[in-house]
Write a protein that binds this DNA or RNA. Structure first.
Lengths: 225, 225
DNA sequence: CTCTTTCGCTACGAGTCGTAGCGTAACTCT
DNA sequence: AGAGTTACGCTACGACTCGTAGCGAAAGAG
């Protein structure tokens, strides 16, 4: 729940009410779920451009004002609705770096194949170019969650001896961070570009060829940096 | 001019008027340029989300109806306004595959650093997920134009002997096409992801590390496929 | 039982959309 | 020069969306 508005923390508060939690009628968790479900459904049917707040409210059987009490606007709402889908991403240990990469590529591709993520992800990223707060939310809700998989896969490969271990010292740590960032942009970028811009399917055959390319690059990279 | 509406070809026509060209008052080319300039300016100031047709018309000092006579809507207009920027992309021969790749990466990054392309490209791609006609326009106006650079760079590298030449026969041609597609998605995807999603600068240092990774991958790929 | 917060509902001004209708301007062909 | 055809600027319009305000009722906390 990254994009939720926090009304009461900014409002008046008395003493230990903060410890006990806010007083008064609590927000309906059921309404939350209904709204996010309705948002995803609307994304599938209408796409980003034609999705309206009023439509989502009607689908969720909730007053339009309730939506605005929780989310600042379309951007934040859609981001939250889509972000939870990224919780599904995992990195099962398939025994080799090659299989791990192929697995995460296909998993990410399956997520991007869903119409709600397709249309929503690019749109919120586009909006984030003129909205710094939105960009920060995307970072923690989507980007960091994916990057963790890269870190994890890299550690496993190092334990298996498929990749050289990190050296000691701050400089080696910085180099490792740069390496993770680079690999992350290459994997996520290639998959997104293939799926959404080129419009070609990210199937097992493509994943295999991409992984072969990336693996060769990683092994060739070992000597330097 | 990919997204232009073509009114008269669908209208009535008499005999040889078709050869001479359409009769009647011609469309103002100056208005075209003013509209596209105004669209880019509006993208910079407002971003995709807050850009409106009425605003563009006012900036271009043109009637709003004129806009709708030429473009079906915001999507098509913005795509045309941004597409011309991709004409700048070239692939000067820098003597080696490594330098050629770094050059095209930095060139593409410079294009993406401009606020009008930043906010517009992702947005139209997002809309294209629910609009097949728009996707086709993006293909020919943007994607194919970039892919040509990959084909060109690959041919040069083969002539230099940096990459093995294509074999004969239809199967080898198909493999070459797949290879170009893969490389294109990796390059364009990584740059876009780095610049717009990760939000980190695509500078010379990053371009160098990315190119090193990709080159190692390409050389490692030579043996198979 | 009181206090606090949320909820549903209605209503609203502001802004945008895309189109229609009109008179005028510009260019082509006879 | 005149007739025919098309583009243009302008105004106006209904439909829709936005985001907010105000109200009474509902739901939990102390």
């Amino acid at each position: 729940m990254v994009g939720r508005m926090q009304c009461s923390p900014t409002g008046p508060r008395k003493g230990r009410a903060r410890l006990t939690g806010r007083t008064g009628r609590p927000r309906s968790a059921a309404a939350d779920a209904a709204i996010l479900d309705a948002t995803r459904a609307a994304l599938v049917e209408l796409g980003w451009g034609k999705l309206t707040m009023g439509d989502v409210a009607a689908r969720a059987k909730v007053a339009k004002t309730t939506l605005y009490r929780r989310w600042a606007g379309k951007n934040e709402l859609v981001l939250d609705a889509v972000a939870v889908l990224f919780d599904e991403l995992e990195l099962p240990d398939r025994g080799s770096l090659k299989d791990d990469i192929e697995g995460v590529v296909l998993q990410f591709a399956a997520l991007l194949a869903r119409p709600e993520t397709k249309t929503a992800l690019m749109a919120v990223v586009a909006e984030s170019t003129t909205d710094d707060a939105l960009r920060a939310r995307i970072r923690e809700a989507v980007v960091e969650r994916q990057k963790r998989l890269v870190v994890q896969g890299r550690q496993r490969a190092q334990q298996r001896g498929e990749l050289p271990p990190d050296g000691g010292g701050p400089e080696a740590a910085a180099a490792a961070a740069r390496s993770v960032d680079l690999i992350f942009d290459v994997i996520a970028g290639a998959v997104v570009h293939r799926a959404l811009v080129s419009g070609e399917p990210v199937d097992a055959a493509w994943a295999a060829r991409f992984t072969t390319l990336l693996l060769a690059g990683l092994r060739g990279l070992e000597s330097r940096d």
